[in-house]
């Protein structure tokens, strides 16, 4: 067999082997590899390269070497999935850099980090002032996870006391075709979809994307971008009507001379107001 043919055959064979081995070791991005996995990758690659281009080399030796470098890490990974202690050795532990708003200089030194590098990592998290940081950990992959102080954290709906739950919208129309499975998941029928499209005044062929949200409202995007489709108006309209009725009831309460009727109107206007308060979060788009 000529040398060049041997190289081609070995290259193809090893390419498949290395690919299979790396797939087997797990699905991870390059940046998420631990030091251990990183070294395994390099060594396996070098062995493969070495056997590929030197035809004089004994193929078996190379394969044995690769097998060892594959089997041992594989066992270690299996063990580390079972045991926390082994995981600490192979993957390392995060190092706390900032605790209770104070920088832990000893830990910085241990990980060979300078103050400048710490500041740089914090800046990458948009934290320019160390005083804003409550807690920060250097993760095993070298990234810094930061917990800002409570008053520096972005506001969330629960901070505002708004209860809002969402469900994922279902895509029911794509490229002018009805997708039956998502439509069923959303609990709608084809007839319903056709009625909704009629209401919007568009034909199915003209729809590029159509989605149903958790409240059963349909939004569509058309091929023809010059056409504007009305956004769902039902909820805001309902809210506006409720507000109008509440105002009306107050007005009646003021106008009537009958004390009993006055009381009734006042009570009901208050009731309606409480309904509005409760339903606003749900009815706002």
């Amino acid at each position: 067999m000529p040398d060049w043919l041997l190289v081609i055959l070995r290259a193809i064979g090893l390419l498949i082997t290395v690919f299979a081995i790396l797939k087997w070791l797990g699905k991870r991005q390059l940046s998420e590899l631990t030091l251990f996995e990183y070294i395994i990758g390099i060594v396996l690659g070098s062995i493969a390269a070495e056997i590929t281009i030197s035809p004089n080399q004994n193929m078996t030796n190379g394969l044995i070497g690769m097998a060892v470098w594959f089997i041992v890490p594989f066992i270690v990974i299996l063990l580390s999935m079972k045991s926390h202690a082994i995981r600490n050795i192979t993957q390392g532990k995060g190092t706390v850099f900032i605790k209770d708003g104070k920088v832990l200089e000893d830990n910085l030194k241990k990980e060979k980090y300078t103050a400048d590098e710490l500041l740089e990592k914090l800046r990458r998290k948009s934290l320019f002032n160390t005083a804003d940081v409550e807690f920060a950990v250097l993760e095993t992959d070298g990234s810094l996870s930061v917990l800002p102080k409570k008053d520096k954290q972005p506001i969330t709906l629960s901070d505002l006391g708004v209860k809002q739950s969402t469900k994922e919208p279902q895509t029911v129309l794509m490229d002018g075709e009805i997708l039956n499975e998502p439509l069923a998941t959303a609990g709608r029928s084809v007839a319903w979809l056709e009625t909704e499209l009629d209401k919007l005044g568009v034909s199915i062929e003209n729809v590029f994307l159509g989605q149903v949200d958790a409240m059963g409202q349909l939004t569509v995007d058309l091929y023809d971008d010059k056409l504007t489709v009305p956004s769902p108006q039902e909820k805001p309209l309902l809210l506006a009507e409720m507000k109008k009725c509440q105002a009306d009831l107050e007005l009646f309460a003021l106008q009537t001379d009958n004390t009993e009727a006055k009381k009734m109107f006042e009570k009901n206007s208050k009731r309606l107001q409480s309904v509005i308060d409760k339903a606003t979060s749900v009815l706002q788009n």
Partner: peptide, 17 residues
Amino acid sequence: IEAGLSSLAIRTQDKET
């Protein structure tokens, strides 16, 4: 309004809403 709210309630998938 009552009818609108009921019809929304029937169509809504999310339990809390």
